[in-house]
Design a protein around this nucleic acid. Structure first.
Lengths: 244, 244
DNA sequence: GAGTAAAGGTCTGGGTTCATACCAATTTTA
DNA sequence: TAAAATTGGTATGAACCCAGACCTTTACTC
């Protein structure tokens, strides 16, 4: 008799070993970073050699990605000292394009990201609240919150919101957490762009953001978690019906 | 004036674009699956073509990985119909090898995985508890629990434990969750092997496992989360000192 | 104005990976 | 016993990716 593989596990555990081609992955990462406002309109990307090192690809490959971004109009490049690549991607508002053209796989991934988010982001907030935060860190968090609340146009608000959530993740000081939140925010961003959503209740959302920040700064993990959970639940409720 | 990239975020968000060489990633995934008991000793792996499709690599690349596993003595292969690749890797007991030879990066990753685990596994348990589970799913969970409690040798217990946690993740029905738990369990497994740990308190651990299962089967998300959190905290407390 | 520094642009040789066939061994089945 | 089916084994040419060196443009410094 030979042993059986554990029922059901193999299918779930063995995953595609890498997304796609390296240069596509670079395009994806950089475009995501720009869309989420990590590199907002007008900011300048690091030099090619540095970016290549950070993404652990050769400069040749990174340059292919850059060429694609340039061609797509997301960035512009100038040569010479003091030159570099600046972001020209303007934050987009939610468009009226129907979500009908979305593939079932993507739709499933979106729904998954909502479930995952409800675990990961409250966890990140709680973790951040449980750590002793440096003064600069506290200031950074407060600044990220202010950016969200003062953003006027919806597109700017969207980017500031992503940055806010990413900032909390970085404060948790856990690389895996940052990666998870980045992934989730990217999916969220896609959903919000693809869905002709009623102007979300920004005031409501901002109150929840503020509550999360208060709890983190006060060092109250459970409270931070609960506040973020509520925030995720409200957002998810809004979206779940529209993509289902 | 040009916009600045959001302070601190770029460094955290831009991550290496892939784990380099596809065949190494395949080796890693397969070896992990075997070590964690997803494919226990004596089980037979899926045919090469199927594995290649699942990992989304070419068969040539997958075969390179297989050759490495074969050479390392983890698997054996026979040809012809009914042939295939069987697992020959015997589960290892925690060895007395000191953890001193571990690189600082790995050590940091280990500590990170403990923080991350405290968020992800309780979240997975809660999510699973919040879903209506099919009868086979309930049976699978119960079976996984029984495997842990009845395992005699420490090495078998270790594998059954990994399988138990992975099973909960799959019941949460979230691919991202499964991936996160797999990553965390892999790190945990490394730590437990590298550290000459006192025989952990298996009875205590089993009681906690049982509590988690009860909560999940009863459909009590908060209780499941709390039980799993306690379990993670206890394990982490044991490990944190030894690797720090 | 000459020189240096910092950035993007280009080239080359070699290793990896891919897709797609086709071959060989072995068991099942007709 | 012969044919079919399933599985691992092999081969080939194209596309991709890498490391490193070198060139060009531009701004700052002396």
């Amino acid at each position: 008799m030979t042993a059986d593989p554990a029922a059901g596990l193999p299918e779930a555990v063995l995953r595609p070993v890498r997304g796609h081609h390296a240069f596509e992955a670079c395009v994806e990462q950089l475009a995501t970073a720009m869309r989420l406002g990590v590199y907002p309109l007008g900011s300048v990307l690091p030099p090619e050699r540095e970016l290549a090192a950070r993404l652990q690809v050769s400069r040749a490959t990174l340059r292919e990605a850059m060429a694609a971004l340039r061609q797509a109009g997301l960035v512009e490049t100038t040569r010479g000292r003091g030159g570099g690549t600046v972001v020209t991607l303007k934050p987009r508002s939610p468009s009226a394009r129907a979500a009908a053209r979305v593939s079932p796989e993507r739709r499933a991934d979106w729904l998954d990201s909502l479930d995952f988010r409800r675990v990961i982001e409250p966890g990140a907030a709680a973790l951040a609240a449980s750590l002793p935060l440096s003064e600069p860190a506290r200031a950074q968090l407060q600044l990220a919150l202010d950016d969200v609340t003062t953003a006027r146009r919806p597109a700017d608000h969207r980017q500031a919101d992503s940055r806010f959530h990413l900032t909390i993740a970085t404060l948790s000081a856990s690389p895996r957490m940052v990666e998870a939140v980045t992934s989730v925010q990217s999916a969220l961003h896609e959903m919000l762009l693809a869905i002709p959503v009623l102007e979300t209740n920004i005031a409501h959302s901002d109150r929840q953001h503020a509550a999360v920040v208060r709890a983190i700064l006060a060092g109250r993990p459970e409270r931070a978690r609960a506040a973020m959970e509520e925030h995720c639940d409200d957002t998810a409720a809004l979206l779940r019906g529209l993509v289902g």
